[in-house]
Amino acid sequence: MLEGKFDQASLLKKIIDSIRDSVKLCNFNCSQNDGITVQAIDDSRVLLIALKMDPGCFQEFRCDRDMVLGLDLESLGKILKQGNNEDYLTLIAEDNPDSLLIVFEDKKKDRISEFSLKLMDIDSDVLTIDDMDNDCSITMPSADFSKIARDFKTMSESLQIIVTKESVKFKAEGQIGSGSVIFKPHTDLDNPDESIKIDMNQPVNLTFGAKYLNDIVKASTLSSTITIKLTDKAPALFEFKLPSGYLRYYLAPKFED
């Protein structure tokens, strides 16, 4: 049996809102030690999502035996809208389930809402992601990166990320012209999340599809910082930390062989 209780429904709502525009169907893999993990690829096979909700994401978590829950995220999203952000949210599934029970509990009123979501058999490929040695790692406010991704999409289909030891530059070239934003490393002692950290082994210059970056920055609601790991001619890793665990996006670059 699975029973996972979130202190606030908003955490799962934000997670699902961050991925459901990229992936419609996905398997939630549940286990006692790892909590709930998801690996899913978008329809165009360009973006891979890796989610890890450790047991620490939950106020209470038990999973007596490993199980896979095949979910339609659009349907799950409809049910999650029924609860309030502050509610307790509990996911319950029996062994070999054909449905997932979702329970909202209002913390102030004696109100309990229960929903049952039909599960699906989802056949999905699992990709092996090796721990990569990265050329660069950037940690910056997620709101800043989100603004760049959204603004530059209006100018160009692609966004270039150029990292040197002194700076990270985001650049877009489109029909109307071009633009760039440069950030330099910066430590904000009063607001550490506002700091910008650049670790560089080798400079990189990579190009990514603006459409996918716009999907990725939907997860900015989950964390005030984003870590971007870049390696020449390899997918970029965009990571948002959860209270315990992470939401990662691996995005294939654009380049000519």
């Binding site: 096979r45 360009v46 891979l48 490929d125 699992v126 990709l127 092996t128 294939a252 654009k254 000519e256």
Partner: peptide, 14 residues
């Protein structure tokens, strides 16, 4: 315009 690669060109299917 540079061509968009897919993620499977980098990460093998298990």
């Amino acid at each position: 315009n540079k061509p968009q690669l897919t993620i499977e060109e980098f990460f093998p299917v298990e």
